[in-house]
């Protein structure tokens, strides 16, 4: 078992401090938005978590391509790690968005393009996990999930475009509040500062989590091969 790299510990501390600072900026530095009130502060971390979700999707698709090209097991571990983290963060982003929407649009849910696409991405992640649990042979599982991650990554932009067109051609706008809620407020400098710092903080946090999850995956793979070996020795 490899010892925990120093760099990883440094990254742990860095991401913790950055997320803490981001929270400080959001709560104490950024002003309260006048039209929506305090709930607008959900926006900063909502976008940041959704960003992490998309980042994970990108990483998973890229890892899929690398796996198919090179056939190295580590790329499969990277892929599943990225999807798992994204699954968690996207779920958080969707719930946070829904909480934000409640007082602003007066409803928990609208079939807004971004919300809908986010939930479809979440379903693709879930399908990815189900696919993995349904295939026992590790090599085959890695190939299939690489392909599925790639397909998901290609189809999502098309889905987003379709839903967006659906909404513009058939406008079901729930009051004019939707325009205000859709990032329609103007960000002043402190808001922008809090916003971009949150994005940066969560990107670092994502990298940190991804590294941890990859280490876990590698350890699991090592245990798996040990298990197979000891099983063969017993025979």
């Amino acid at each position: 078992m490899k010892a925990k790299p120093r760099l990883l510990t440094a990254l742990d501390i860095l991401s913790f401090l950055m997320v803490l600072t981001a929270a400080g900026l959001v709560f104490y530095y950024a002003p309260v938005e006048k039209l929506m009130g305090a709930v607008q502060k959900v926006f900063y971390f909502h976008v940041a978590t959704a960003w992490v979700g998309m980042l994970g999707f990108l990483v998973a698709a890229a890892a899929g391509i690398f796996y198919l090209r090179r056939g190295e097991e580590q790329w499969d571990i990277v892929g599943v790690s990225a999807v798992e983290i994204s699954l968690v963060f996207f779920l958080i982003a969707i719930i946070m968005g829904s909480i934000w929407a409640r007082p602003i649009w007066n409803t928990w849910w609208t079939w807004d393009p971004r919300l809908t696409t986010a939930s479809i991405v979440e379903l693709i992640y879930a399908a990815y996990m189900l696919l993995r649990s349904g295939v026992d042979d590790p090599e085959r599982r890695a190939r299939f999930s690489a392909i599925y991650a790639l397909f998901g990554f290609i189809s999502v932009p098309l889905t987003f475009i379709s839903i967006r067109l659906l909404r513009t051609i058939h406008p079901i706008v729930i009051g004019s509040a939707e325009a205000a809620g859709q990032g329609g407020f103007n960000m002043d400098a402190p808001m922008k500062m809090a916003f971009f710092f949150s994005l940066a903080a969560f990107s670092v946090f994502f990298a940190d989590l991804l590294w941890h999850r990859i280490r876990l995956g590698e350890l699991k793979a090592a245990v798996e091969s040990l298990r197979v070996k000891s099983f063969q020795e017993e025979k």
Binding site: I120, I124, A127, S155, T159
Partner: peptide, 11 residues
């Protein structure tokens, strides 16, 4: 697996 990927086609 299939439905979420073919959503653009369906829409």
């Amino acid at each position: 697996l299939l439905f979420p990927l073919t959503l653009p086609v369906i829409i």
